[in-house]
Structures are given as structure tokens and as C-alpha cells.
Computed example of a mutant assay.
Amino acid sequence: MSRAVQELQDATDLIDELAARRLGVNRTDLRCLSRLTARGPLTASDLAAAAGLTGGAATTAIDRLERAGLAERVRDTADRRRVLVHLTGRGREAVQEIWGPIAADARAELLRFDVAELELVETFLRRALHNQVRHADRLRGETGGT
């Protein structure tokens, strides 16, 4: 089982690397693009928190995504003091082109499982996510010294 999980992580990592290359961005920018895709428009500080970045790093990533034509800063119509980062039309098209077929294939595979099996898979994924987040926090807290 652990080998299958590792191979899935490696395959996901490869897709991310190839997607970043295709879009002309780096992996940090890709992570921001992912958060905008999943959560919709965000303030720079919310995007930074969602992507695990400092405010400065998020600003730099947003600048690069804007230069690539994938995201844009837009004044919030409800509160003109706030600026939200939105995907552009090009950004949405790129996400669909790269990840749309992957998501469609995944949905087709999920249809092969019954409800109980899907609940078990979801439980495993939630626990695996918790484990990854916990260890990311651990690694963030380490100084890196020997």
C-alpha cells in the first residue's frame, strides 16, 4: 500500500512539474494557481495562508501569475479597499486544459466503487492529508541545523 501511495505522489509531482513548465511558471506559482482554482478569488494574504507562503512570497507569485496572464488583481466590488486575486479567462482555460482530463478520468474511476468503498477511500485520504499537513508543520518548525 505505501508503495502505491508513493507512486501516486511521484506521478502527481511529475504532472505538477510538467504543468508548471507548460504554463511558464514555477511550482510556488502553480500552488497559488491551484488554491485560486479550488477556492475562487482570494486576497493576497488569504492566498498566502492557503499556499503556505509569506506575504512577500505570495506577492511575488501573484506578480508572476499576472505576467503569465493567468491571474489578475481586481478591486472587490463589495469593499473597494480590498483587492482580490482572480484567475483570468486564460488561467481558467489552462487549468481546464491540463487538469480537466485528469479530473474526468478520476470521476470515471470513482464510478466503479460503491458508496461504502468511497467512504473508506475518503477516510484514508482525509487521514493521509492530516498526516501530510502535520509533517509539513513539523518541517516548517525545524531550523534545518544539525
Rank of each mutant, 00 (worst) to 15 (best):
L118C: 05
L139Q: 09
E66V: 13
L36A: 00
F124K: 04
V25A: 00
L125F: 07
G69L: 07
R75K: 09
F124T: 05
R64I: 09
T54R: 08
R27Y: 05
L120Q: 11
V25K: 01
G40Q: 05
F124V: 11
Q132F: 10
S34K: 11
R27N: 12
L53T: 01
E97N: 06
R64W: 01
A106R: 06
D10I: 09
E119R: 09
A44E: 12
H135L: 14
G141S: 06
G100H: 04
Q132D: 15
L47G: 03
G100Y: 03
V25L: 04
A71W: 00
S34N: 15
T146I: 11
T60D: 03
R39M: 12
V115A: 12
E117S: 14
N131G: 09
Q9F: 04
G141W: 02
D137Q: 14
L42H: 02
L14T: 12
E109V: 12
A58H: 02
L47Q: 01
L18S: 05
D137A: 09
G56P: 03
E93S: 11
P101C: 09
R92G: 01
G91Y: 05
G40N: 08
G141R: 13
R75V: 14
E7H: 12
L30W: 02
A51W: 00
S34T: 15
L129A: 14
